[in-house]
Simulated scan of single mutants.
Amino acid sequence: MSQMNILLLGYGDVGKTISKILMSKDVKPVVVDVKEEIEYELEYIKADVLKESFWTFIDLKNYDVLVVALPNDVNAIFCILMAKKLNPDIIVFARCNDSNYVEKMYRAGADYVANLPLVSSEIVITSIFREAMAKRMIYENLQIVVYEIKNGSPIIGKKLEEIKIPNCKILGVEKEGVTYRDDDFVITANCKVAIVGKKEDLMKFEREYIVS
C-alpha cells in the first residue's frame, strides 16, 4: 500500500485544520461536507452524511482511514456505526465535543476519540501517521503507542494476523515511510508498529516483545 486513503467527514474549523496538516504531508484527503465550496485543491463530495443516500453512494472499501470531524456528537456516532457496518476494517478517528460521548463513540467502533479541545488536530494527525516513536496519547487510560521494532525482538518474522495482543489492537505498521495494515504483512527489524490499548496491556506487550 503506497499511501493511506483518508476520508474526512466535516469541513468546519477542525476539518480544515486536519486537511491542512494532511496536505503538508503530501496527502490529500477526500472531504465530505454540505457546503457548496471548500478551500484548497481537495477532492470534494457535497453530501449530507446523515442521509442514507450518502452511505449507499460511498465505497468505504476504497479508504484506509475515516476521520469524523462533525460538530455534533450524536451525528458522529451515527457515522461511526455506518462506517464500521460497511467496512469493519476501516480505522476511525473521531472528534468528540462532550466527554460524556467518548465511551459511546468507542462502543460504536471508533479506534481513537479526540476529546476536543483537550486533544488537538495535530495529535490526531500524529496518531494517524505514527511518525514519532513511542509518542503516547492518553485519554481515560487508553493510549496509542508507536513501538520501534529492533533486532532481537521475538515479534520479528510474524505476520500481523499471528500477533495476538489481549485487549489491544494493531492499527498499522510503518516501514520505510509506507504504512501497512495487511494481515499477511511480516514484521521486520526497524519497522514501527502502532498499537491502541490500555496502559497495563501495553506494558505486557512491551515486556514480551520490545527490545531496548
Rank of each mutant, 00 (worst) to 15 (best):
A110D: 02
E36R: 15
A132R: 14
I91A: 04
S127W: 03
V65F: 02
Y44H: 06
V65W: 01
F78T: 12
V30E: 03
E208H: 03
K198I: 08
V173P: 07
L81G: 08
Y40P: 00
K150S: 05
I38Q: 02
G157L: 12
D59S: 12
I170D: 08
K104T: 12
L60V: 04
I18M: 06
V34H: 07
V193F: 05
Y180W: 09
K104Y: 14
D59H: 09
I165V: 08
I163R: 08
G157C: 11
K84Q: 07
A132N: 13
V146C: 04
F57D: 12
V113T: 07
L171G: 04
V68I: 15
P29I: 09
L8V: 13
V31E: 01
D183K: 14
E37F: 15
N97K: 10
N87V: 11
F129N: 05
L42S: 10
I170E: 09
I210C: 03
E200G: 01
K28Y: 10
P71C: 08
K150P: 00
V145D: 00
S2M: 14
D73R: 05
N167D: 14
V178K: 13
Y139W: 13
S53F: 02
L66C: 05
I187V: 13
G172A: 12
S19H: 07
D64K: 02
E161V: 09
M105Q: 10
